[in-house]
Computed example of a mutant assay.
Amino acid sequence: MSKKKISIISSAYNEETNIPLLYAQVKEQMQKLSAKYDYEQLVLDNASQDGTLRVLREIAAQDPHFKVIANARNFGHIRSPYYGILQCGGDAVIYMASDLQDPPAVLPQLIQKWEEGYKVVLGQKTQSKESPLFFMVRKFYYWLLNLVNDSGTDLPANCTGFGLYDKCVVDELRKLNEPYPYLRGLVCELGYARALVPFVQPVRERGFTKNNFYTLYDNAMIGFTNHTKVPLRLAALGGFVLGGISLLLALIYLVLKLLFWDKFPMGTAPILLSVLLFSSVQLFFIGIIGEYIGAILTQVLHRPLVIEKERINFKDK
């Protein structure tokens, strides 16, 4: 009886110091399971500026299980790993970050849940050794997303995409042809049996995080635009409510001015405050609408997820 094959995929940008450790720890865990499973490890290099690609070549030269796709440029933290998942041919695909904040020690637990019949097994950060404030902000985001979520899909909190996806799930993802996917929500929408594996997120010990305000904001807004129309409806409702309030205030000012013509000065402060309030509200909701329009534009343009420069250790070129 042939062994089941597990594909393990990561995306890397300037991770020269972490790649050897990632490789060693993944290999250690998979060797423990070698009696039942074959495996391949795929790393996509996002046009790293350090020696990441050199290190990847060295590892691939000595281990046929280790595969590399070198991208033509940096295609980002969303498209690149998703593309890698679609390139894998295992019976199950495991996605994990290359900075070791998704610990390889969790791999056996993910596979065990898969063997129990779950098609999607997500790693869930129950604790984190990163900044407590940063972790609280993440928890608040997931709480808010689930609060306004009207897609009918339960989105598990503190799941970043780290997890195992059965071959049938990956096959469905290929059919969707998503140009800019929100992976953690997309796999939940498919409706397959899902399990969670809790883990403690370690701190990054080597290199520098590639996450910044923009990348985190980008991820957050993709989650909102993919799973809820509530912000758009709030824009309409907010306009109606504020319009009613402004009309009421105008009537009150008119009555007071007629009753106390000499003693009730109109003043410029209320006018300025009202203009600032309504301008800020308008800009906020225009920005919300812009996010949805941007999501539509991405779908319409439908540019390729990734352009490859080179493949290493792939038998089928």
Rank of each mutant, 00 (worst) to 15 (best):
L256Y: 09
M96L: 15
T215N: 09
Y37I: 08
L147G: 00
A12H: 04
N46Y: 01
L53M: 07
G51F: 00
K129N: 13
Q112M: 01
P270C: 11
L216M: 15
L259D: 07
K113H: 11
K263D: 14
D154W: 00
K36E: 14
T209W: 10
N146M: 06
F260T: 02
G163Q: 01
P103L: 05
E115V: 03
V275Y: 04
E291G: 02
F284T: 07
L122N: 03
L155I: 15
E130H: 09
V281F: 12
L259Q: 14
L53W: 02
V121N: 05
L196T: 08
Q101F: 00
P156T: 01
L247T: 09
Y165H: 06
K210C: 04
L232R: 03
I111D: 04
L283F: 15
L173N: 06
P231Y: 02
V306P: 06
S280F: 14
K27L: 06
Y39W: 15
N146I: 05
A61V: 03
K27E: 07
S7Y: 03
V203E: 15
I312V: 15
L297V: 13
F213Q: 09
W261P: 00
K119F: 06
L53E: 05
V169N: 09
C168M: 11
A220D: 03
S48A: 09
I312Y: 04
R54L: 10
H302F: 05
V137Y: 00
Q127N: 11
I94R: 02
Y253G: 14
T228V: 05
C159N: 11
V275A: 14
G207A: 09
E310D: 11
F208A: 15
A97F: 08
A70F: 00
F260D: 00
K257R: 14
Q41L: 13
Q112I: 02
K113P: 01
V170Q: 09
D166W: 02
F264H: 12
L144N: 05
A269S: 10
G238V: 12
I111E: 03
A220F: 15
L176M: 12
Q25S: 12
P270G: 05
Y95D: 01
N212I: 05
S80L: 13
G152N: 11
L216P: 00
G191C: 10
L186R: 14
V55K: 08
L100W: 02
G161Y: 10
I19N: 05
A35L: 11
V197I: 12
Q31D: 14
K129Q: 15
L100A: 10
L155H: 03
R57L: 06
